[in-house]
Amino acid sequence: MEINQETVAHLAELSNFSLSEEEGKRLESDLAGIIDYISQLDELNTEGIEPTYQVFEMENVWRPDQIEPQEADREELLSLTKEVRNNQIKVPKVL
């Protein structure tokens, strides 16, 4: 996998952030170095091995479907944002 300015720009887009030109240049060599390092996993034979995503292999941990009193109410949560209108968070135009 070759990392160039095009792949850096694509990954920044997937990651939803802007990069300065200088940052983009640095990231090109940084990412290439990291990908080169992690690619050594190729050497490891994993044939017939199942993947692990969670060490205790837990699944479907249930609790009663009861609403518990919450620590924060709507007003408190809305107070954390920059601009509120009609009890909603205001954002810039979407389209």
Binding site: I38, L41, D42, L44, T46, I49, E50, P51, T52, Y53
Partner: peptide, 8 residues
Amino acid sequence: KAAKARTL
């Protein structure tokens, strides 16, 4: 691949 390495 990494998830399998984790199993090993």
